[in-house]
Amino acid sequence: MRDAFGAVQSVLVLGGTSEIARVTVAKMVRDGHTSRVILGVRRPDEMADAIAEIERVGATDVSAVAFDALDPEAHVAMIDGLFGEGRDIDVVILAFGVLGDQETFESDPVAAAQAASTNYAGAVSAGLAAARGLRAQGHGSLVVLSSVAGERARRSNFVYGSSKAGLDAFAQGLGDSLVGSGVDVLIVRPGFVHSKMTAGMDPAPMSTTPDVVADAIIDGLAHRRRIVWVPGPLRFVFSGMRHLPTPLWRRVSADA
């Protein structure tokens, strides 16, 4: 159960190798009351170091379970199983996703479809399964790592952007469906995040770091927010961007 300050006791991360998620979990454990952490990852047997790191900052019950975004049958069964154990999970973070390379996608449409399946379809099945578990326990939050890339598709990453647009719309609707259930959905829309996923890329303006995104997630959970932008002013930038005439948008988004 969360306490009066919103501190989280237990968290399930789907996409446990995500840098943002790992920083978030480390902060929750170190500064909050989080004692139980479950990392859903493709290869749980390779997580010993990550587990040791989370235990080092203070968690007492850390484990890794197999999670493959492209295998909905298996991951829905895994999520149902975790909730069926009878121990509550206060927060589920959907942190998995691939950025990919737009040029590669354009020459390999099958790879593009696979990225879209990971980012969108995988989140649909995992998100619905997690929401079902949270709804049954009568409390909890689902954190969905979206992106400003989904706000308006750019020529340079529209496969990724469109998958995030789908994910974001899904998360909004899922949040609406959970009204009155004691469960809420927090949508996180970061801009360009300096991380291993974006290593070697030119940063966009108003770029941020996993550390800042983690703080925004924790603050958003404590205040039960619906959407957080990181950094915050991106909200106003994109409310303008969304309405730019197409020729102008093409020029602006190509330069950025």
Binding site: A4, R135, G138, H139, G180, G182
Partner: peptide, 17 residues
Amino acid sequence: MTGPTITGWGRTPVSTG
């Protein structure tokens, strides 16, 4: 489940039962 939101006198922690 959907039900009333229940809290204590402090109006914090919230849950549904």
